[in-house]
């Protein structure tokens, strides 16, 4: 565990806490894409299946449980408790355009090179892990699409997106660190992590030039 990995995790944790608090405090999920939140829930469930098969550390298990729990809480708030405030008309990204390619890619390009055997738990966990890595890299697209469609984002939503985007960028530095000091790398995670971070670049620019200077995030018409 290096400092970039730790700050990356804390940034990720901060993001999901900001989101839950924003919805809870304002009693509204306006401006938040439910589709992105469904995709993130799917990411956590498929990646953290190893909670049951592979113990790593108390820290690791704790964070996984928090991510799954917060993700479920977000979905509950959006689709049940504050359903009336959900921006359904603007949240129109077609998630099957992400899910289908990502599923195919997960089946084709993963770390498990043995032939497919039905009922092979290790293989299933591995393929689902890979699927989750690919899915996470693009899961923010419905949210970015919603922001571009409405042309604006609340400042608190911008902070959420900034924390969520920074997390994978910090992981990228963590992977460079691990490559140099531990001689370890994971090509699937690295490529997906780069894609994930690149998708946020436009938003990072807007955040730095507008939100930090105290202005609302409003896109040029």
């Amino acid at each position: 565990m290096n400092i970039f990995r730790l700050t990356g995790d804390l940034s990720h944790l901060l993001a999901i806490i900001i989101l839950v608090l924003k919805i809870w405090k304002t009693r509204s999920c306006a401006g938040i894409s439910g589709k992105s939140q469904i995709l993130f829930a799917l990411v956590y469930f498929t990646r953290y299946l190893d909670l049951f098969t592979n113990y790593i550390s108390l820290y690791n298990s704790f964070m996984k449980i928090v991510f799954i729990g917060a993700s479920l809480a977000t979905l509950y708030l959006m689709y049940m408790k504050f359903k009336a405030t959900y921006d359904r008309n603007h949240d129109t990204f077609r998630i099957e355009f992400l899910l289908i390619p990502v599923t195919l890619l997960g089946l084709l390009v993963n770390h498990e090179f043995t032939p497919l055997e039905i009922g092979d738990t290790v293989l299933v966990v591995q393929v689902l892990w890979t699927f989750s890595i690919y899915l996470e890299s693009v899961a923010i697209l419905p949210q970015l699409f919603l922001v571009s469609k409405t042309g604006e984002a609340e400042t608190i939503t911008s902070h959420y997106l900034m924390a969520l985007g920074s997390y994978r960028a910090l992981y990228l530095i963590n992977w460079i660190w691990r490559y140099y000091f531990e001689g370890f790398y994971d090509l699937i995670a690295i490529v997906a992590g780069i894609v994930q971070t690149v998708l946020y670049c436009d938003f990072f620019y807007l955040y730095i030039t507008r939100v930090i200077r105290g202005r609302a995030l409003r896109l040029p018409a």
């Binding site: 995790d9 690791n60 591995q126 892990w129 890979t130 992981y171 001689g183 370890f184 994971d186 090509l187």
Partner: peptide, 10 residues
């Protein structure tokens, strides 16, 4: 150099 899934990460 070792490669593989970074399963200790989140």
């Amino acid at each position: 150099i070792t490669t593989g899934a970074a399963k200790d990460e989140l």
